[in-house]
Design a protein around this nucleic acid. Structure first.
Length: 185
DNA sequence: TGCGTGATATTCT
DNA sequence: GAATATCACGCAG
């Protein structure tokens, strides 16, 4: 699912205004056995409760005292597997995004990181648990029917999970090759 | 390269 | 109920 999200459009309708972008970078978090996942070892807490819902729900968490990150739940209820949205290519509502991303100088700075994209779209914990398949203000539009061919996708280690022992270096990060909108790690 | 920053999980009383 | 450790990052320098 992390692969097939690439090229699809993430949309938030914020007080009537559309904010949107094409997903260009994701990371897979593989649930209970994955030492880098919030649900590692079967941990189930109020924070990560949305991870345990049906696929299509959104899990947003707050971290480092100032950042939010958003994940799309992937599997059936009870299997806490998800994809972290790491970067989008902003396509609609850039003006409002710049307002929220004070330090951004170029379009490529706007949403090129998991916390940047949340800031640009104004996503926070209020959006954790939203059902993307039903919600009218937050959803994913299908732009393409098939996932990109594998030669269009770069597969890389995940970011910021050095502590996760044997899971730290697994190739679970997917980017659209040559997109200038990916995070710059 | 080095922090800021505060919620959360975990571990203690 | 309280203390502590940790963190799926971004920015200034």
């Amino acid at each position: 699912m992390a692969r097939s999200l690439l090229g699809q459009r993430l949309v938030r309708v914020d007080r009537g205004r559309r904010l949107a972008g094409i997903i260009v970078e994701t990371e897979a978090y593989l649930g209970i056995p994955d030492l880098a996942a919030h649900t590692s070892g079967g941990r189930r807490t109020p924070r990560n409760e949305p991870m345990w819902l049906d696929g299509g729900h959104l899990y947003v968490y707050f971290t480092y005292g100032m950042h939010h990150c958003a994940n799309v739940v992937a599997q059936c209820r009870g299997e806490p597997v998800a994809a972290l949205l790491r970067a989008i290519e902003p396509t609609e509502g850039l003006k409002l995004m710049y307002k929220r991303r004070h330090s951004a100088l170029r379009d490529t700075d706007l949403c090129s990181g998991p916390a940047k994209l949340c800031a640009a779209l104004g996503l926070d914990r209020r959006h954790s648990g939203v059902d993307l398949c039903r919600d009218k203000h937050l959803f994913i539009e299908q732009v393409r029917r098939r996932a990109f061919a594998s030669d269009k996708i770069a597969v890389l280690p995940r970011i910021g999970v050095a502590y996760a022992k044997q899971w730290a270096d697994k190739p679970l990060r997917f980017t659209l090759k040559d997109s200038p909108y990916v995070s710059r790690f």
